[in-house]
């Protein structure tokens, strides 16, 4: 009588163990990080076997480094540095042309709230310094006239600055473009689900295996807490916030999103998140909407096709574009 139950116990335990060991694992993620464009880039891939994935991810990092070499203002040999030095028109790569055209377009669409030529202003404020200071008002004002009107003239593949006092700095939009390139490399390698996160500029390829990617939106005032989560596939998400890089002086918060019309940090928002098809565009639009403020910013995001977003105003009210209302989950 005792023998059989024991045999059954063994059999059941075996079944339990088997079912445990055979439990389906979430297709394993391969995550790699690299420091590119002065920020931390993390690429996650799901699917392919690990070795192929490693190869694809390192190719994607290489693609981003190539864009860094084209766009960085810190690299003397970059094409942006070349444009910034040249007095006459110079020939540039189609990649640079594409990003400049995107920058000019967003600049027009946002009536100058986004500006690709803030190089001098950024240098004046110098957020890279050990202890940044608010520059003199006269110094800021001296830079503003160069920011009025179109920054560059493009004819064919040649680019020329329209004002000698203007210095291009494609910062975030170039970073976003590099993420888009990395995604293209991953897609070409046959990867169906991957994510690239360059310091908060997020580009998604497919979903996270079969389900969508879950993107947490940082709460602009409560560190470490989420404002909301979004479930997305094949989208780009970029958040511009006043909490990421800032310094305090005389009780005022000075952050790194500047209003090209005043030369000072924009004050109307705490954060703006934009969801659209490409990371470059999402980055530019997040900056533009941040500068425009909750009302005009929301109107801009609503007006553009295939663009959604979420705006937290300076007073903490949250506005969401109509297309995003059903997809967002509040925390």
């Amino acid at each position: 009588m005792l023998k059989r139950p024991l045999a059954l116990i063994a059999a059941l335990l075996l079944i339990l163990l088997l079912s445990w060991s055979l439990r389906p694992r979430a297709a394993s993620d391969v995550s790699r990080t690299a420091l590119i464009m002065g920020t931390l880039v993390e690429i996650k891939g799901v699917g392919l076997d690990d070795k192929d994935m490693e190869g694809a991810i390192s190719d994607a990092f290489d693609a981003m480094r190539r864009e860094e070499a084209r766009f960085s203002t810190r690299i003397e040999t970059s094409q942006i540095s070349a444009i910034n030095r040249a007095i006459t028109a110079i020939e540039v790569d189609p990649e640079v042309l594409a990003v400049l055209q995107l920058g000019q377009r967003i600049s027009r669409q946002s009536e100058g709230a986004f500006h690709p030529g803030l190089g001098r202003l950024l240098k004046l404020w110098n957020f890279e310094a050990v202890s940044p200071r608010v520059p003199a008002l006269s110094e800021v004002n001296a830079l503003l006239p160069a920011l009025i009107g179109e920054p560059v003239a493009i004819s064919g593949s040649a680019v020329k600055r329209l004002n000698p006092d203007l210095q291009l700095d494609l910062g975030g939009i170039a970073k976003g473009y590099a993420v888009d390139r990395a995604l293209a490399v991953l897609r070409a390698a046959g990867i169906e689900s991957a994510s690239v996160n360059a310091g908060g500029d997020i580009g998604l390829l497919g979903g996270h295996a079969e389900r969508p990617w879950k993107i947490g939106i940082q709460h602009p005032r409560k560190t470490g807490q989420l404002l909301a989560t979004l479930e997305l596939r094949d989208r780009a998400v970029v958040t511009s916030g006043d909490y990421e890089r800032f310094f305090l002086q005389d009780g005022m918060r000075y952050h790194h999103v500047f209003d090209p019309r005043t030369g000072f940090p924009a004050r109307a928002c705490q954060s703006v998140s934009v969801v659209t098809a490409t990371v470059a565009e999402a980055d530019a639009l997040a900056t533009a909407a941040f500068v425009l403020g909750p009302i005009k910013g929301l109107a801009l995001l609503e007006r553009l096709p295939d663009v959604e977003g979420l705006i937290v105003s300076a007073t903490g009210e949250v506005e969401v574009t109509s297309g995003l209302k059903d997809q967002i989950r509040w925390r």
């Binding site: 908060g200 989560t229 998400v237 990421e244 998140s273």
Partner: peptide, 12 residues
């Protein structure tokens, strides 16, 4: 790294 995160990626 590990299971049980509220989200896959954080936009900040």
């Amino acid at each position: 790294e590990g299971e049980g995160g509220e989200y896959d990626l954080l936009s900040r």
